[in-house]
Design a protein around this nucleic acid. Structure first.
Lengths: 349, 349
DNA sequence: TTGAAAGCGCTAACAG
DNA sequence: CTGTTAGCGCTTTCAA
């Protein structure tokens, strides 16, 4: 069916000619404007179908200034990403909300330094109306770049900025990492545990820092031997646990900054012959049910509603993109949101 | 720094005015054309930086007809995708090759029926120069749509088409699933196994069908009780294995159509007290090392170079997009490629 | 209700 | 080496 008219994809003009009307009229029916005679509209729709016409978004965007697509940018080594159910939840919420608003989510990865300029050109190039940015590292250039381009953006997790920046100029959605960590550690204390270690995430990420801060809020004078840094992977958690056991064989509890790492820690504990929770109590963070429920023993962990956070981010972004920027002073940017966490007690502590 | 000139993002015109030259000259330095006096070029670069100018790709695309972005479309429930290291490898290869060609990969998901029209509009809207399409299901409308839009595309895995379609009109890259399966089953036979069962993938996917066909090539007269269908997940493999054990307690080998399923099957076998490979020999498919090497026992499986396949797909697509479509007859479309597989023998068979 | 015309921001000849 | 001039395909006043 799709006749190639001039060897190219059909344009509005082609459809118009075919239907014997003007471009304007075709444009009107394409965009669902009501003031077109039914018969004409029908004829046009026929022509569209016959020619297999699809509007050229680039051209449309040039005039309308938007194109119903939003970027989801993830700064993360891919191999980590695709193995971490955390993103899956986040993305599910985002997708759900975005499509509800008629926006197409497009996923972009940043894996190496070289990716920044290309991704920035893409973001600034008007391919998308806004961006949802994730897992920013310390001194990540993205927040500044996005801000400078004036592209509406919402961050997943508090952006960690270099000195001189205030994170309150950015809109973000984050879980109450610090409060959640505090609750977890307090719970361990309430259990009568005395030597409570912690396995942190990579400390160039806000979530890792905040969770450690929460731990320190409760246990300000922790000796270094009770601290080990992991990398939010199972393996990293296992290694950190081994290190901890070497440094402090007498520890009786450990607060692990993610479920993935906690499952690794559990494995090490088992290998070293420690029983959980009797010898060592373990509390994780995230409450990724596919993990937390199947560990041995099932994991006591800090719950956060990741999917809802994704939905929230998407909703906030859509709010900012659907309205043309207010003139005069800055538009009243939606405030950032910190969502509550809660401790879910299973068997590991 | 980024002064808002007319309250909008700066345009080429703004930069030109600022640098005291014409738009053309600015355009030249933006696009790295050499014939510009160094001093002028420098002045322009200064203006670009001061204004925070980023070219509007929509406008550029309108005239150049391309925009250095290609879509990677995945038709898969997200939760499956994000847990399957298979895609990780594929994507790694694709990304690598695409950025080498200066193209930005953008990932699109199709999860439900409603996603098709939106994704098609995106693909047809000229946001991307081409598309890499994955894990198509039987009767997936995507191949036809993409073909009809004239968007260059390369498929990952042989597309499964409804009747009346010949898959040879599409360019695809696929592993030799049938040959690999044949080799696996022959190996099992050579081991002296007599009752060789198989766990298939979902039979609406080409890879699953082809692997089953390979099994049947060697064992044409398999009784139904030796067949069970899985869904390419760990859980599915475990369930299928349980079913098989019920239906055919005397089986002495099983060819499992994916490593993920094989790891599930191994678990079931262990739970049922069968030793591997003594009681039951197991061969998987994919050779996802993060899985195959850590199963207990390590998995004998059919290896395919997934990352290289990704690279190949990207290379083929870039080849097709960088040249403007030849006039007259169809451009000599690159032939599809079937990459070889090889059996990797570890301990499970 | 429909059409004509003016641009959106950019590149690509073609002059100079 | 640089500026001028046309559009790319679409939406959007403004008239008819």
């Amino acid at each position: 069916m799709a006749e190639r008219l001039h060897g190219q994809r059909p344009t509005l003009e082609d459809v118009a000619r075919r239907a014997g009307v003007s471009k304007s009229t075709v444009s009107r029916v394409i965009n669902g404007e009501p003031k077109v005679r039914a018969a004409v509209a029908e004829r046009i729709r026929g022509a569209v179908a016959e020619l297999g016409y699809v509007p050229n978004q680039a051209a449309r965007k040039l005039v309308t200034r938007h194109n119903n697509a939003v970027a989801v940018v993830v700064t993360e080594p891919q191999n980590r990403l695709f193995v971490d159910p955390y993103f899956d939840c986040h993305l599910r919420g985002i997708r759900q909300e975005l499509v509800r608003h008629g926006a197409q989510p497009v996923l972009l990865f940043i894996e190496e330094q070289d990716d920044y300029p290309r991704v920035c050109d893409f973001l600034g190039g008007g391919h998308v109306d806004g961006a949802l940015l994730f897992s920013l590292l310390a001194d990540d250039p993205l927040p500044d770049m996005v801000e400078q381009m004036g592209l509406p953006a919402v961050f997943g997790g508090r952006p960690l900025l270099g000195s001189g920046h205030r994170s309150d100029v950015y809109t973000y959605v984050d879980a109450d990492n610090r409060g959640g960590a505090r609750e977890a550690v307090r719970y361990l204390v309430s259990l009568g545990r005395r030597r409570i270690a912690t396995i942190t995430g990579p400390l160039d990420q806000a979530a890792a820092i905040d969770r450690l801060d929460g731990y320190r809020d409760v246990l300000p004078a922790t000796p270094p031997r009770l601290l080990a840094q992991g990398d939010f992977t199972v393996r990293g958690g296992a290694d950190a646990m081994a290190l901890l056991l070497d440094q402090a064989p007498d520890l009786d509890a450990v607060f692990v900054a993610s479920d993935l790492m906690a499952s690794g820690a559990l494995r090490t504990l088992r290998e070293r012959g420690r029983t959980v929770p009797d010898d060592v109590a373990v509390v994780g963070f995230d409450d990724l049910t596919p993990i937390a429920e199947v560990t041995e023993p099932p994991l006591t962990t800090v719950h956060q509603d990741i999917e809802e956070m994704g939905r929230l981010m998407a909703r906030m972004l859509c709010h900012r993109t659907s309205h043309p920027p207010l003139r005069g002073d800055d538009a009243p940017s939606l405030a950032s949101v910190v969502t509550p966490t809660r401790l879910v007690i299973r068997d590991s502590a």
